[in-house]
Nucleic acid binder design. Sequence first.
DNA 1: CTAATTTATCTTCCGAGGAAAATATCTACG
DNA 2: CGTAGATATTTTCCTCGGAAGATAAATTAG
Lengths: 173, 173
Amino acid sequence: MPQDSAAPPSHADAVDRIVGQWRRERPDLDPSPMHVVGRISRLHWELDERLSRVFERYGLGRGEFDVLATLRRSGPPFELSAGDLRGSTMVTSGAVTKRVDRLERAGLVDRRAAEDDARGRVIRLTERGRELIDEVVGHHVRNEERLLAGLTEDERATLADLLRKLGQTLGNP
Amino acid sequence: MPQDSAAPPSHADAVDRIVGQWRRERPDLDPSPMHVVGRISRLHWELDERLSRVFERYGLGRGEFDVLATLRRSGPPFELSAGDLRGSTMVTSGAVTKRVDRLERAGLVDRRAAEDDARGRVIRLTERGRELIDEVVGHHVRNEERLLAGLTEDERATLADLLRKLGQTLGNP
DNA sequence: CTAATTTATCTTCCGAGGAAAATATCTACG
DNA sequence: CGTAGATATTTTCCTCGGAAGATAAATTAG
């Protein structure tokens, strides 16, 4: 008896079960895209959960970490405009304002008017902010490394390439 | 001149640029896990954005869609306890209560006491709810299909397998 | 059988971020 | 130069979901 292409893999996960339910209930639909889309969604949820634990240990939320990390990796003098931060962090301008508010209150960044454009504001890591993010990022990447430890080097590379391609072709076949 | 394993791919994306920044700023760290983790995060964001558009066209948010879809794919009689819904949708019990509140107000589900356990509540799709979710799900899977159109069948299968494996080994190497 | 514990759901309070309006400033054009 | 329209950021109001406590009912211990 030949293999059925719809046969579940040897170790089914929650997404396989969901796809199976849809096949049974709606045989007119092809739910196979969920194998990719649903897993990205679930993995994001689980990763976020685990990565947040590290941030919390330092009194940071995901949003604050993102801002600090964006400033840090931009290099000296560790400053960016609010608009730059919005572009890097994929949130609205209002959210950037509030994230920076919290970080400013905590003494991790400061704000000043831009020299050339009085509408603009320059957000800069303070010394404390730089020290903190440098420490957190170390824990963060080691945490990520640990989470990926179940995949071989080759698998990670293949996965990264496919995800890159998906991101670049999303909706543009 | 041999290839440098750190050389960026021909078509770098935002994550490649971020990893490059970290390599420059923190050469003591290995930011390569971000190639996978960072892309899952970004893809989730973009997918959520695009998938939500379909839900909005039917006056639904992601949360409401999740509940309706979970009830629908569970099969006749399209009813589950609040606890079952919590397990499937990865939110807290309070969030389930509120999602169901909204759906109940919209006449898409109804709630009744469980027969065997007076603490329990049974949430069931109404006729309108079933009709609506059946229509939305069709659009939804076609939307997902379109979003994945840039990947070949083989690439999708490989991607799905790697994501499944990652989910199953997360933090358990 | 009664009291303590556990379980299922809901309620209350709060924080994060989105949408859109409000401000302040810059740029262009007549 | 002066005003209309763009642009950068902040403010206001609102929704969603989390955390933790409240309720009510089931289960278990004695």
